[in-house]
Design a protein around this nucleic acid. Structure first.
Lengths: 192, 192
DNA sequence: CCTATCGGAATGAACGTTCATTCTGTAATA
DNA sequence: TATTACAGAATGAACGTTCATTCCGATAGG
């Protein structure tokens, strides 16, 4: 196996296992086994488990942002822009349940809280600058309800995350139409 | 210390530690220490850690439902009823951050998913029968958007949970007025 | 009223297991 | 041959749980 293949296999195995079983259900030995490498080999590519976990997160975030932002134009009216981002996000979650599960694990852990804090304080480049811009402009132009930015985020994306989770857990099944209707409902929540 | 005091101390310590550090940051030895009892003593009151965790959850849920449902009347119009429940929930979260953190830990774990599944399948009495009734009636009377019940729940309460988390993490500060406005926005999301 | 006996509550050291990480000998590569 | 990469055994820390022992209040006997 080539050097890069090995690294990739480790990443893949770790992502799968953590998404399926959580951080504590994914011991390094198990990751190594699924990746088809020795336990010690992982440490040739990642300093320790924390580094591996954080790097995984970054990779998922990057890919997600790229897909969501594809075709996004600041020329579109607010509602259309919001629907673009919202449906893109929800679709991504549903089409990549492993990534979604991983992100949930990550956000509900000290790792994730730290990242979020950094983002809010501006110490870290957020992939969601587009949202921020959208919301700030929307409020300024009285299209959106006047709320602290954080609350607007929560109103808009809180339901999407929850809905995605329920879909992935099998509590409900979302088709393309239902995705759109759900995001439209979120828009109703934030629009003036 | 009387027998009941000891049990109560164990419950208190476990709730605090799990809320603060998660299930894996709250070893039995640490719980025992904070409760001021021996490690083995816990096992005189709870068969094992799982039982302790589930019993804690039940207690929190019961107290929460009691507070939220206080003053609730099925005579009130839909919007008023929703605001009652929504603001009650959000207030409870904010006033009992430890409980909120505990519930989050719980729901993002196999324990919580199992409970949720039971509730949806009707195998378990949900304290949220009031919500269910409210939403079903609301849809039947065309006051609410027509969605699968689960999605309606998510649209309504997803943002509340997210907002509460951000408040507790210090990312935003909600006063009484903001709580009401936030729940009103959730209503806008689900109303026709 | 004092002391001996008793039973369950409480204890914390010890156990077996699991984990992240390190170490070591071997194989591949140059 | 010298160097690097590797696998997997070894390591030690941390965990949930157990269990032989201690503690303590109640009761009985003198």
């Amino acid at each position: 196996m080539a050097r890069n293949d090995k690294r990739e296999e480790i990443v893949r195995a770790a992502r799968e296992l953590i998404a399926e079983n959580g951080f504590h259900g994914a011991p390094m030995a198990m990751i190594a086994e699924r990746a088809g490498v020795g336990a010690g080999t992982i440490y040739r590519y990642f300093e320790n488990k924390d580094v591996l976990i954080n790097e995984l997160y970054g990779g998922i975030e990057d890919r997600m942002n790229q897909i969501i932002m594809d075709g996004y134009s600041t020329e579109t009216p607010f509602r259309g822009r919001f629907l673009h981002i919202g449906t893109g996000l929800l679709r991504y979650f549903i089409e990549h349940p492993l990534d979604f599960r991983y992100l949930e694990q990550f956000h509900n852990s000290p790792y994730g809280v730290a990242v979020r804090r950094d983002k809010l304080l501006g110490n870290r480049e957020g992939g969601c600058n587009a949202f921020k811009e959208l919301f700030e402009q929307g409020m300024a132009q009285q299209v959106l309800k006047n709320f602290p930015l954080v609350i607007l985020f929560d109103l808009a994306f809180g339901p999407l995350v929850t809905v995605a989770r329920d879909h992935i857990l099998g509590f409900v099944t979302l088709d393309a139409a239902m995705i759109v209707r759900t995001v439209e409902a979120c828009w109703d929540g934030i629009k003036r």
